[in-house]
Simulated scan of single mutants.
Amino acid sequence: MLSKKTFLFLSILILFIIAAVIYFQSRNDPNYELPFEIAAPPPGAINAKDHGAYGDGKKDDTQAISEAISTANKLGGGTVYFDNGTYIVSKKINVPKNVSLYGANSENTTITRQDGEDQEIFSLSGNQTVQNLSIISNIGINILGDNISIHQTKFRCVLQAIQMFNKTSGLIIKQAEFTESGYGILSNNEASNNVRILDSKFHNILYDGIEINTPSDNWIIENCIFDNNISKSEWAGFGVGVAKKAKNITIKNSKFTNIIGQAVHVEDYAEVWVIGSVFENNGGVKYKGSPTADIAVLSNGVVTIKNSLFNESSADYSDLAIYNTDLPVGGHAYVTNSTFNNKRISKTVNHEQNNFLNE
């Protein structure tokens, strides 16, 4: 006979387990909507409308937003707050260090640039947060400094949502949504180190969800969803692309579905770990020199895959789970403790303790 205290403990434990199962099942649903909450202004925040911003989707708010940012900067740092509304910007706004940008809610607080210029809305200098905004432009945010956090923000940017061309460190992106954007996140030119991309969604991407095209170090991409890549370029179409000797790149507990190129593309001596991730319906178009597969390892790339699931593909997508280029310019692919449902791997892939389920 269980005591009342033991019974109560077991009841709470069972409820917790049920709730956790429901949560993680929903996170793997491509239709799952990330939670975006209405946020009150942080204490001491400077309201952009107090500096003359309209947020009516008609008048140009560039000058008012710049003045609010300048006021925060003169105070040694602070937060500029945007009430619900649509704020029109007509040129790039440089945001100094220690000045953060908060919106009321990313569903209803939009910053948009409509002049057609291929230039970002905000350049961020470091030690700051962007949260609860919706960014619509050709290019969204340019990362110039270190220790920047982007939370609960939505992007729809034709070319690049988040651009990283300068050497940076300590970027955290959490609960962000990238929809109908060219590149969701692009690291190009100089290395970007110590980056965390967590609990985010990449949907209907036009080029690559994430492209690391620099010798960057120490990225974690965790609990992310990549679905419905619709690229028409033969040089793009990846969920995550990694090259240029990038190392310590880890993809964990993420899901890739309906990616027209490869879900994960690794080349040029880059080193990637894939852990606990799910792949289904990837590799829909074959480009010259680039195979159809869930994961492709090319030109001396190194990929280690553990505890992952490769589900059967429909007729429009590849039945090849892992492609590894042949020597002498071959990649190095290792897979363990993973399950393949009517999927195959290249003969050059090193594998052990896997489960191949073939009907």
Rank of each mutant, 00 (worst) to 15 (best):
V130A: 08
N311K: 15
L8D: 12
W219D: 09
N84E: 14
L357C: 06
S277G: 03
T6M: 04
G126Y: 09
V329M: 11
I205V: 13
R156H: 03
T304L: 05
Q163C: 05
N84V: 07
S106I: 03
E211S: 15
G276R: 14
F340C: 04
S66G: 07
I205A: 02
F178G: 08
A20G: 07
A53W: 00
R156A: 04
S11R: 05
I93P: 01
I205C: 02
N31T: 13
M164V: 15
S90P: 00
S26L: 12
N28F: 12
I38K: 13
A246E: 05
E180F: 06
E107L: 12
A176E: 06
V195C: 02
S308I: 07
A321Q: 01
T348P: 00
A72Q: 08
N223S: 11
S192L: 06
V80K: 10
G182D: 03
A270L: 08
G116T: 06
N98G: 02
Y207W: 08
G55W: 04
R344G: 08
W235R: 12
I141V: 15
P43R: 06
N204E: 13
E180K: 13
R196N: 14
H203C: 07
T110W: 00
K255I: 14
Q114F: 03
S125I: 05
S313E: 07
A68Y: 06
N281P: 10
V95A: 00
F16R: 05
G209T: 01
Q152L: 02
N31L: 13
V349F: 04
A72I: 06
S308Q: 04
Y317V: 06
P291S: 11
G237A: 09
I249P: 02
T348D: 08
G116N: 05
A64Y: 10
N300G: 00
T325K: 15
T257E: 15
K97N: 12
I259D: 01
I150M: 02
L327S: 14
D115F: 02
Q63R: 03
D115M: 02
V303Q: 01
N194R: 11
T257N: 06
S314D: 13
D326F: 05
N31E: 14
K343P: 03
A53L: 02
M164Y: 05
A296I: 08
N189Y: 11
N98R: 12
N229M: 00
E190C: 04
S231I: 00
S70Q: 12
K5L: 11
D61N: 10
I12L: 15
S233R: 15
T250Q: 11
K167L: 04
L327K: 14
N31A: 15
F256P: 02
V89K: 03
K92R: 14
K232H: 03
G76K: 03
V195P: 01
K306A: 11
F226M: 09
